[in-house]
């Protein structure tokens, strides 16, 4: 420990001056450098990690902000009008101010009811076939491909297709039925998928128990599988109503965009709210309060769709409790 003695060590190209007792040895120094390097690396990694955490929370906040902005702005501009009975249940005006939207409200619900009446039986039937009867193979692959392609078809293409086949070729004219047939095809893939998921969530043991008791396959489906899958299927149907009510591009050239009278027969033209907003936008100048009408209608439409989405969830929970089925989803 003679403090002032300085040695120079040279080894493997590394030159370190060592004052014995005061300075570190070559190994110590190396260790220190490496440790510093690791520390810096760790600090950087920690900083990057914090940045990542902050960024994901920020992204989530933006997504939430977008929804909040949409809902708040649309409601702020139109909910006052929408919840006014004179507007909601009022007669539309072609030239004068102060018109209501009652025929459009009826059109939307009428169209949704007709469509659901067709798409749910077909979609559930297809799902039953896929999950209970078909063996995985060429047919199921073809059906899945068909459903995938169908779900990718743009809604405006559904619209012009429906116009050619249902409105013109089959001679239905602009009508609720032509629109419902078009929307049945449009919604078929989603109804099929949600129904099939619901059916597949039913435990195999339920089916085995029924089959072991001597029930046929169809009896098993009818008495055991479908009742157990009902909550899931119902949720899918309610969500389909939301999509039907919100659909406009497929409706404009099949159902119509403006009516003065409430549609009675499915063969009559009608004007669902979503299509009527488009009409109000394009023909805006006809009535001076067109902005008020479209604002009110947009707010009511959004309110309806949000209620259907939330309602579907509450309904699932209630039905699941009642029938005692365990749903896979949360």
């Amino acid at each position: 420990m003679s403090g002032l003695e300085v040695k120079t060590v040279e080894e493997e190209g590394l030159r370190v001056e060592v004052a014995a007792g005061l300075c570190e040895s070559r190994d110590e120094r190396l260790e220190r450098v490496i440790r510093q390097h690791i520390e810096r690396h760790k600090r950087r990694a920690a900083a990057a990690d914090r940045a990542f955490t902050a960024a994901t929370w920020a992204v989530a906040a933006v997504a939430l902000g977008i929804l909040a902005f949409i809902v708040i702005t649309i409601f702020a501009r139109g909910l006052g009008t929408a919840l006014n009975p004179g507007f909601l249940f009022g007669k539309p005006q072609a030239i004068k101010e102060g018109g209501g939207i009652w025929p459009m409200v009826v059109s939307s619900f009428y169209l949704a009811a007709l469509t659901v009446a067709m798409v749910v039986p077909v979609g559930v039937g297809a799902a039953v076939y896929m999950s209970e009867f078909a063996r995985e193979g060429r047919v199921t692959r073809l059906v899945r491909l068909g459903a995938d392609v169908l779900s990718s078809v743009p809604s405006v293409v559904f619209g012009i297709f429906g116009m050619v086949l249902f409105v013109v070729y089959l001679g239905l004219g602009y009508s609720l039925l032509a629109g419902a047939l078009t929307l049945t095809l449009l919604n078929l893939p989603t109804v099929m998928r949600t129904s099939e998921e619901a059916l597949r969530a039913v435990p195999v043991s339920y089916r085995e128990a029924s089959l072991a008791l001597g029930a046929s396959r169809w009896e098993t489906v009818k008495r055991v599988v479908l009742p157990s899958a009902a909550p899931g299927i119902t949720t899918g149907a309610v969500l389909a109503v939301g999509r039907i009510v919100g659909e406009s591009a497929a409706v404009i050239y099949t159902v119509g965009i403006f009516v003065r009278k409430i549609p009675v027969s499915p063969l009559q033209p009608a004007a669902p709210m979503a299509a009527h907003i488009w009409h109000t936008y394009t023909e805006g100048a006809l009535v001076s309060d067109w902005m008020r009408i479209a604002n009110g209608e947009a707010a009511f439409l959004l309110l309806l769709v949000l209620a259907l989405n939330l309602g579907a969830r509450l309904l699932t929970r209630a039905l699941a409790k009642k029938t005692g089925t365990v749903k896979g989803n949360e």
Binding site: P121, V122, G123, G125, A126, V128, Y129, M130, F133, A134, V139, L142, V143, L145, G146, A147, V149, L150, V153, V157, F158, I160, F161, V164, L165, Y169, L185, L188, P189, M192, S216, R217, W218
Partner: peptide, 29 residues
């Protein structure tokens, strides 16, 4: 059972039929 099975099969094929109809009519026009 046979009738039910065939009916369900037809329903499953509706998605495929739908695609064919759409392609056919849009292409025709």
């Amino acid at each position: 059972e046979w009738i039910v099975r065939k009916t369900l099969f037809v329903m499953a094929m509706m998605a495929v039929l739908g695609v064919l109809l759409i392609v056919f009519f849009v292409a025709r026009e």
